[in-house]
Each structure stands twice: as structure tokens, then as C-alpha cells.
Design a protein around this nucleic acid. Sequence first.
DNA 1: CTCGTGACTCCCG
DNA 2: TCGGGAGCCACGA
Length: 113
Amino acid sequence: MSDIFTARVVAIIRKIPFGKVTTYGMIAAEAGNRCGARQVSRILHSCSEKYDLPWHRVVNRNGEVSFRSSMHHHFQRNLLAGEGVVFSVQGKIDFEHYLWRPDEPVTGSIPNS
DNA sequence: CTCGTGACTCCCG
DNA sequence: TCGGGAGCCACGA
């Protein structure tokens, strides 16, 4: 398949462990494009149900839900709450405990910058 | 094929 | 502190 970006994004999202969250930017960066964050959201929108992706585990850079509709916003928050994810008073997720990195699970082979 | 849109993110004034 | 613009690319019509 040529659309490696989509496959990459889907694969990464599927790897998100239970009770963890990640950001569009990280997925996009792992997929190969930092600026592809928008595409990630686009893909999620189109393939969330088809590929059964845990879209609710994907949040924006601020650690909060990016939905415009309060209804969906509250819905995602509910799903995360069901996984044990706790939101701060400001409705943000504590990255210190819930942020997951696609390149972390490896044996500490982090390319020091 | 072309066009429009978007659940993002970063930079600048 | 906050608003606006630019950049990227896939999917649907």
C-alpha cells in the first residue's frame, strides 16, 4: 500500500496501551511528518470505527480533548475515565502518568539529542 | 482528476 | 496573554 502514513498512524494508535494517551503530534512524528498532525485527526475520523481505533486515547498537545462539540468532548472524557485516566481540574490529562510514547517501549534505545 | 475541509501544531506580532 | 497565519497530507464528494 502506498499510503504508509495512514497504515503507520493506524498501527501506532493500535499500540496505545490501556489507560494511556498520546498526542497527534507524536503519532504524526512517528508516522514521518510532524506537520501531519491534521492528517492523523482526519484518519482517525475516517478509520476509527473501521479499524476499531481507540481514538479516545488521542488528545492534543495540551493534554486535553480537542473536540469542538461539548457532547463528543464529554464522551471521550468519559471513555478515558473508564480506563482509569484522571483529568485535572482544568480538564487536562496528567502527562506525567498517562502520556505514552510510541518509541518508548523499546529497551531504552533513546537517541539522545 | 480537482476542490474543499479538517479531532493539529508552531511561529510571530 | 492572545489572535492570526502558514504548513502538511489524506479522505470524501
